[in-house]
């Protein structure tokens, strides 16, 4: 089990080591200590390894992740798991702005709260937030599922193209073209599978959520939607 102390090892060295891991590597479990809020920790991984980060991380931790499982035992800065392709990033504390931004796949779990613009421009990622999310979340979301066990801030799903937004608590307000939708059995089973993958299926029930998505009124430029442009 390789151990990397970021108080001693330069970040560039850690990331270079992680990038050079072969798919069949035996070094499958890494521990990173003293992250100290540094940026771009464990970004750009592409191997089925587990990285445990003990402490708080800065911007873009786990950015563009593929395959790897990254667990931050602390808080995460701006853009955690941005543009994630696959794998899993889990934040035991809170996440800053733009968590999971533009993510295309994989699972992002925030065990605390996520602040503004969580899931902005999401393109297929699944995001589960145990706490609440801030304003302008899922702005311009295109695909994927955002599951929030707490509350959602203002302008949820503004200018959404597609994606499913499941919220258990209150929604401060909905953004342009985002509406509440009836949950079909397919939707519920998708929600259930996200809860299951995040290890939450026993703590909450699918029935406690409401679902929001695109009204599709902005799909085409039209004079009647002029307030939204």
């Amino acid at each position: 089990m390789p151990d990397c102390d970021l108080a001693k090892t330069p970040l560039r060295e850690l990331n270079a080591m992680l990038h050079s891991l072969a798919p069949s590597t035996n070094e499958t479990h890494w521990i990173v200590t003293n992250p100290g809020g540094k940026h771009a920790i464990a970004c750009g991984l592409d191997a089925p390894v587990a990285i445990g980060i003990q402490g708080h991380v800065g911007y873009y931790c786990g950015g563009m992740n593929k395959q790897a499982t990254i667990v931050v035992s602390g808080n995460a800065g701006v853009g955690v798991a941005e543009n994630m392709m696959s794998g899993e990033v889990r934040v035991r504390g809170d996440a800053s702005q733009a968590a999971g931004a533009t993510g295309r796949g994989g699972l992002l779990v925030i065990e605390g709260n996520a602040s503004a613009r969580c899931g902005i421009s999401m393109k297929g990622i699944d995001i589960l937030v145990k706490g609440s999310i801030g304003p302008m979340s899922a702005f311009m979301a295109q695909a994927g599922n955002l599951v929030v066990l707490g509350d959602a801030g203002d302008a949820l799903g503004d200018s959404i193209y597609e994606a499913r937004l499941f919220v258990r608590g209150s929604v401060a307000s909905l953004g342009a073209d985002c509406v509440e939708k009836p949950m079909s059995s397919e939707d519920s089973s998708i929600l259930n599978s996200v809860l299951k993958r995040a290890g939450m299926e026993d703590s909450v029930s699918v029935d406690e959520f409401r679902m929001f998505g695109s009204a599709r009124r902005l799909y085409h430029f039209h004079i009647d939607n002029v307030d939204a442009y």
Partner: peptide
């Protein structure tokens, strides 16, 4: 979506450099 301004741009550039090993 995940940065504004030159102070954050510096951090975004750092990420892209880290991702592609400089």
């Amino acid at each position: 979506p995940d940065w504004t301004g030159p102070d954050d741009l510096e951090i975004k550039i750092e990420e892209l450099r880290e991702l592609t090993d400089w």
